[in-house]
């Protein structure tokens, strides 16, 4: 009895103190990314929605690299795929990333945890329009891991990303 009570207090305390940081804000602008599936945090019915400002808030990186889709060295910046998934409490093994044209690619969760794979929202300091493969472009760290520079990762480098489904 005593035990159950203290457990309850501990649990409610943990909830109270963690809520402000863990809670997903509501998007204030146009939603650019929707995450569905095996996630713990949501801000809409069964899904987590992000606007560009929310993505910018997340832990990200900036890297200069060459890609098959750009001319010369290009600087990309944006939140890490890992931090987006953390923000939604994703717990799955596979991600299905879908583009605006409904093209989708399956990406193993390891790509997010092992590499600093980012969801680029800026190219050469500018936001990316849809015509420029925006608004979100999954960029593998070709600068940090040249061995990733092959078709396997090219096909996973989805652009014009619309949504991510976390599959258990």
């Amino acid at each position: 009895m005593m035990r159950a009570t203290s457990f309850a207090i501990a649990a409610s305390a943990a909830f109270l103190f963690s809520y402000p940081t863990n809670a997903l804000e509501m998007p204030k602008e146009r939603v650019v990314l929707t995450v569905i599936g095996a996630i713990d945090e949501t801000n809409a019915a069964g899904q987590a929605e992000f606007d560009l400002a929310m993505l910018k808030e997340l832990d990200g990186r900036s890297g200069e690299m060459e890609t098959p889709w750009t001319e010369g060295t290009t600087r990309f910046d944006g939140p890490l795929l890992r931090s987006v998934l953390d923000a939604v409490g994703a717990h799955g093994k596979t991600l299905r990333i879908t583009a605006l044209n409904d093209y989708s690619a399956e990406v193993p969760m390891a790509d997010a945890t092992e590499f600093d794979t980012m969801l680029a929202i800026g190219m050469n300091g500018e936001p990316m329009s849809i015509r420029d493969k925006g608004p979100i472009f999954m960029i593998y760290p070709f600068d940090q891991h040249p061995e990733l520079y092959n078709e396997k990762y090219f096909s996973r480098s989805v652009w014009q990303i619309k949504s991510i489904e976390v599959i258990e």
Binding site: P68, W69, T70, E71, L100, N101, S129, I130, R131, D132, K133, W159, Q160
Partner: peptide, 18 residues
């Protein structure tokens, strides 16, 4: 408009000399 933008984005890929 979205569909056009997507088509437009394909155009730049074709331009890529690689």
């Amino acid at each position: 408009a979205l569909r056009y933008d997507i088509l437009y984005s394909r155009l730049s890929v074709l331009d890529n000399a690689k």
